[in-house]
Write a protein that binds this DNA or RNA. Structure first.
Lengths: 331, 331
DNA sequence: AAGCGGAAAGTTATCGATAACATGAAGCGG
DNA sequence: CCGCTTCATGTTATCGATAACTTTCCGCTT
């Protein structure tokens, strides 16, 4: 790199410290000095060295790490976008990682990121390995757990209850007269949140005397094809279902495609409900019954909670965001 | 942080340098020493300080920056995923940013990232401000430009020709007998790549004596609604089109929704073609005519080119990936 | 037994910015 | 005109790891 603080200091006839103060926009220098320093810095094409700054004083790190289950999830893309917009505006840089729905991979990621001494971290979910929690304590940076609500966060939390989402959908489908419900899931065992929705769903159905009839939980990623073949498998085993709740909208759309292919009328013969609120679903011939999650808002809230903490303000410990059940024409 | 190299050195009865050598897996120590050091490091819960390492010796940075137009683009999500998978496996960390299709925002991002002295950078597109190019030269890190092919990259390039995509689609639609083509775009002026596709499309049509009849380029983000209303506007002005080429699949799907809502038969009354190969399109009742882009492969190739360069190997200067025109039932 | 090669380990200087402390000059009331 | 405050500025130590160099030690040859 061409110039450092000392080069500017020499050229401007002041000390390094004065240059540092000017460029960071502090106080303790005259207007005349500031102008001179700024001009020289510009002329020399000075590019600050955050590595040195963050190393010398961890206070000055502007590195924020964020770990999501998958980078290709449309839902998390919006969360990421919300975080990035809020943070980049304030001069923070975002380091990302994907844990593939595994707390072990999350631990590996946190271990890597911890070595960069980040100013803050955003994690997805409330489940972590003990070693992860240890590491987080050691880095001593603010941590926001997003997506799944936890009332006892490591530090801060922004999310909603997946259990309640499932329960609410169960109630809704019962009100619409559905009595023989099935479920098609994915990411068997890896995804505790889909599991939580299923449990909420089941609890409500059982409580009403119409327990879940059958379920098909694939090992695959939750996508269109998983939804398509999941529904096929489920119906082959249990043909007389009157509604199927899917892990998410992608899968529900796959289910709709299967129904269309087989001449199953939706919602007359079979109801279909999803979860998440994928954008693409809004242009289906029939509006999908689903639960919309305020993804961008979650990202924004997480970033804001983090920044508040970094500025020394207390910061909201737990932020609950509202999901919204959208009654469509498929459920 | 609990422990640093010196703490381990003291506890193990060796020097810092020996600990450093052991933990980095170098040579110059006995098996006995290695075991002792490793054990102590583990016991003390040592977390390396990459800030110090990268600062002391830029060789040892494992930071890679990547800038995409939008974080919410399904296409770029897969590119990102391809990059992340390839890099994280090798111990690199990914810093991301979005430039909102603006070279000025890209410059701001590069300026920020440059101050972290990254080991490498991945940028989208081949257009950059002069100041960006200057900065890139200054950071002296390998740079991969992706998405749009350039035969004279700053450093390395992985991509394909948007112009050719448009031209190929033009030829295809002409072969299918279309004679009065329209175009619906988005991101007016901001997106040079959509512009390139349009130009390729127009050139072929004009060359065949059936020039583009009308076009509607919105200022909006390219999404479903933009496609819906874009087609509405276009057809209001020029009703007698027999095919419309869209900026991307999202918009084409919006166009399909508009056609369905208005009772316009596709492809009989109007052909519709998209670009990009969005996953969701695969479950439409009629398969969308589009060009599929190998997104994950682009990410993977970009990461590999970067890593090769970082390892001192020459690295592929220009990598051309193949897009694939998929004849659907809508065009 | 002197000398030598090479592996193992230690020493020193360094990266660039910042916190904490120190200095110095100007301004000002008594 | 002295001592006090205040603001502008300079000095010094420091963060943790690493490159480059130096020393130590051991075994082996002649």
């Amino acid at each position: 790199m061409k110039a450092n603080l000392e080069d500017i200091a020499k050229a401007a006839g002041v000390s390094k410290m004065t240059v540092s103060r000017v460029l960071r926009g502090g106080t303790g220098f005259s207007d005349d000095t500031r102008d001179r320093v700024v001009k020289v810095a510009e002329r020399l094409g000075y590019v600050p060295n955050k590595l040195a700054a963050a190393f010398g004083s961890y206070q000055s790190s502007t590195l924020v790490g964020m770990c999501v289950p998958r980078l290709t999830s449309g839902l998390f893309a919006h969360v990421l976008d919300g975080v990035d917009r809020a943070l980049s505006r304030l001069g923070y840089q975002l380091m990302i990682g994907a844990n593939n729905h595994s707390v072990v991979e999350e631990e590996a990621w946190v271990r890597q990121i911890a070595s960069w001494r980040p100013a803050g971290l955003i994690l997805s979910g409330r489940n972590h390995t003990p070693a992860t929690v240890d590491l987080l304590r050691q880095v001593a940076a603010p941590v926001v757990e997003i997506w799944e609500l936890t009332t006892s966060p490591i530090d801060m939390s922004v999310g909603f209850s997946h259990h309640d989402c499932g329960a609410e959908m169960g109630q809704f489908l019962l009100r619409r007269g559905r009595r023989r419900a099935g479920y098609v899931g994915a990411l068997a065992r890896a995804d505790v949140m889909g599991q939580a929705r299923l449990e909420g769903f089941q609890a409500v159905l059982a409580g009403a005397g119409h327990p879940l009839v059958d379920r098909e939980v694939l090992m695959d990623m939750p996508g269109f094809y998983a939804g398509y073949y999941g529904l096929e498998t489920l119906l082959a085993r249990t043909p007389d279902l009157d509604v199927v709740y899917f892990h998410n909208d992608d899968m529900a759309v796959g289910g709709l495609a299967y129904a269309a292919a087989k001449g199953i009328r939706v919602p007359e013969d079979l109801g279909i409900a999803g979860w998440g609120g994928m954008e693409a679903a809004s242009i289906l011939p029939k509006r999908l019954t689903t639960t919309v999650v305020p993804t961008t808002a979650i990202g924004k809230a997480a970033a804001e909670a983090l920044v508040a903490r970094l500025k020394g303000e207390p910061g909201q410990e737990v932020t609950v965001v509202q999901t919204r059940l959208v009654p469509g024409e498929t459920g």
